[in-house]
Simulated assay, not measured.
Amino acid sequence: MEDEAAVVEEGISPAQSPLVAVSFQRNVHRNKKYLEAEPKALGITQIGLSLFQIICVGVFLSKGLSFVTTDIPLLISSILVIIAGSVAVAAQNLHLPTLRACLGMQVVASGASLLNMICILIKMDHTPSFCWNYYYHNATVHWGEICHQIESIHSHIHAEGIVIEAALLAISITLAAYSCKVINCCSPASKMPVITVQAPPVQH
């Protein structure tokens, strides 16, 4: 990679003498900074949490306890986050095109997580009350209590979904920030000062 090669820039040395020369070189190990973000752990977390969200949405849809209009975008966004997590894990090879793909997918995953949070909030506001039918059409108090418990579980799962999406958003931003540092899309490549001590000429 051309931008990862150590390039000595002449003429920018603050101090130069016959015995000491100061130059600045690009940090050839800056791509390893991506590994400081623990991309494997964060990528697997993205995949696992998104799969959990997909399973929950699928269960509610199959039981008729949710809305297709909000669940379809949620499913698509969760699949995008899974892809972003897979790319983050693959970017551990520090290959520059893979790191660029990781940055792009993490930006997409951030937007997807925000969209999922909005969808879950909409679902919470428009959750139908299933229990009124029990009270009006079924005089058994026992079934009414069970229904209220189901509604309570339903709302708790929605709240849990918001927390999960907030965690996924934080993970996406973290991975995007580290990817951005490595591929230098937001700032120029960092340079390290290199001091070269030259041996004095041997006098005869």
Rank of each mutant, 00 (worst) to 15 (best):
residue 2 E to L: 03
residue 4 E to C: 07
residue 7 V to M: 06
residue 13 S to C: 05
residue 18 P to V: 01
residue 21 A to N: 09
residue 23 S to Q: 08
residue 27 N to W: 12
residue 28 V to R: 13
residue 29 H to N: 15
residue 31 N to H: 11
residue 32 K to G: 07
residue 34 Y to S: 02
residue 38 E to K: 08
residue 39 P to A: 03
residue 41 A to Q: 06
residue 41 A to T: 14
residue 48 G to N: 10
residue 49 L to G: 00
residue 49 L to K: 13
residue 53 Q to L: 04
residue 54 I to V: 09
residue 57 V to R: 11
residue 58 G to W: 09
residue 58 G to M: 14
residue 63 K to V: 02
residue 65 L to N: 04
residue 66 S to T: 06
residue 68 V to I: 11
residue 70 T to S: 07
residue 75 L to T: 06
residue 80 L to T: 10
residue 86 S to C: 13
residue 87 V to T: 14
residue 94 L to R: 13
residue 99 L to A: 07
residue 100 R to H: 14
residue 101 A to C: 11
residue 102 C to I: 02
residue 107 V to T: 13
residue 108 V to N: 06
residue 110 S to N: 04
residue 114 L to A: 07
residue 116 N to G: 12
residue 118 I to E: 13
residue 118 I to L: 14
residue 119 C to K: 05
residue 119 C to S: 12
residue 127 T to N: 12
residue 135 Y to Q: 11
residue 140 T to H: 09
residue 143 W to T: 05
residue 143 W to M: 11
residue 145 E to C: 11
residue 146 I to G: 05
residue 147 C to D: 10
residue 148 H to C: 07
residue 150 I to W: 07
residue 151 E to F: 06
residue 155 S to G: 05
residue 158 H to N: 13
residue 162 I to A: 12
residue 164 I to N: 15
residue 173 I to K: 04
residue 177 A to E: 15
residue 178 Y to I: 03
residue 179 S to R: 08
residue 180 C to P: 03
residue 181 K to T: 02
residue 187 S to L: 03
residue 187 S to V: 04
residue 190 S to V: 09
residue 192 M to E: 12
residue 192 M to C: 06
residue 199 A to L: 07
residue 199 A to M: 10
residue 204 H to G: 10
